[in-house]
Write a protein that binds this DNA or RNA. Structure first.
Lengths: 227, 227
DNA sequence: ACAAATTTTTAGATTTGTCTAAATTTTAAT
DNA sequence: ATTAAAATTTAGACAAATCTAAAAATTTGT
């Protein structure tokens, strides 16, 4: 990847756009709108248009006027490399520096832009090649492959079924802190005991104890069903 | 230092100027010239003038037209905080990720700009609060204090005196690789056996073996004399 | 299908950090 | 003490990334 770090310079701003387009595109191949990008990045649509042209010129996106943008293969690879760095740094912060999962995002947003292939590969090795980040999101490998776990929202699980909590949908500090306070953590075994029709809240069994949780919470927790 | 990371925003460019002014100022309180800064940073004197005004406005330097700049106390603290980060990251790269001492500078130049007090303090703790970086330079503590070792250049040592190699003056990759190739490393015990008047080269004893080194090399190695 | 609402783009301006070329100040030399 | 040389600053320009306001295209509602 000599190419990357030297010949083809990508600015921090470009990287942030590419990452955002990747997340909004959500592996479907349809176009992402200027407005959606602007809203997500807290910027103006006109700024997005300018950047869309630049990214198209550099080969990261296909841009159709008035339609939106989609990442090229090159753009997807670039996005995956940034996401890989972001998530590996998050694991590093939690595993090696005892950050809590609600503190890692901000710092990883900075660290993901550090340009050194050797650095991130060494971090990967130091962490023993983790497959998931502290929020349960998959970490792309060096060659851009990653395994999306077969998982479902707790709110979508059938009565009496059991599984392991493997991820969060909402990664806001507020939600993560709430989970900590209620001893809900990744790896916990959860069984749906009862569903309340009225407000769609759930009675669950988690690690032995019984718990009542709102729909809002249940619809932001990912569960991997037991085989 | 809440102040720092939020209220008072320092750009990466400003940080690089502050760092350069600190190094050129070399703890003497006299002014650093525009030209010197420009040369060191591979930029133009006119650019330095512009930045000098901005840094003065923000309180980092005292700027006297046609005379030069010197850091204020605030500027010195800022410089020490950047240098602290740079050197701690260098130790991290060597100690935890097995980088060699000639590979760390480039990456540390990027990492030193990451803004998170918790991050750098955690790295500091992880490394067990090192006092010196891989090149033997002192690491400022959180409150900006650091101990400059009592040391001298190998080329300035008297005949028959002995000491420990504690640092390098030239930190270029070329020099560091040369030292590696010749098994010269920090911590080695060195004794001056003979000095050649003609070219000022030295015969030394290092860790048992005898070695002939040029003045160029000897004048870039720091030795701490044995008590 | 057509007018209204929404989305997107264009045009022109701003900020940051840089440059070149010209003007000014300081330093050095005789 | 003048003048020549060197260093420094000013003025004006440029690229990147952003903004606002206005224009153009698309979508929506009836």
């Amino acid at each position: 990847m000599y190419f990357w770090e030297n010949y083809f310079f990508v600015t921090r701003s470009e990287e942030n756009y590419i990452k955002t387009i990747f997340h909004l595109g959500d592996n479907s191949s349809d176009l992402v709108s200027t407005n959606a990008i602007a809203e997500q990045m807290d910027t103006k649509p006109s700024s997005v248009t300018d950047m869309a042209k630049k990214l198209a010129e550099k080969g990261f996106v296909n841009y159709k006027k008035y339609q939106g943008v989609s990442l090229t293969d090159f753009g997807i690879n670039t996005a995956l490399s940034i996401i890989r760095k972001h998530r590996l740094w998050e694991v590093f912060l939690v595993e090696k520096l005892d950050f809590s999962w609600d503190e890692v995002h901000e710092v990883a947003e900075q660290l993901e832009h550090i340009k050194s292939e050797k650095l991130i590969d060494s971090i990967d090795a130091l962490l023993d090649f983790p497959k998931y980040d502290p929020h349960g999101d998959p970490i792309p490998s060096k060659d851009g492959k990653f395994m999306e776990r077969h998982k479902q929202l707790l709110s979508d699980m059938a009565l009496k079924t059991e599984g392991v909590c493997v991820g969060v949908k909402d990664t806001s500090a507020a939600f993560l802190k709430f989970l900590d306070k209620n001893r809900i953590a990744l790896g916990n075994t959860i069984k749906v005991l009862e569903k309340e029709d009225f407000d769609q809240s759930l009675h669950i069994q988690m690690e032995g104890k019984e718990l009542h949780i709102s729909h809002q919470i249940a619809s932001n927790l990912y569960i991997k069903k037991n085989d």
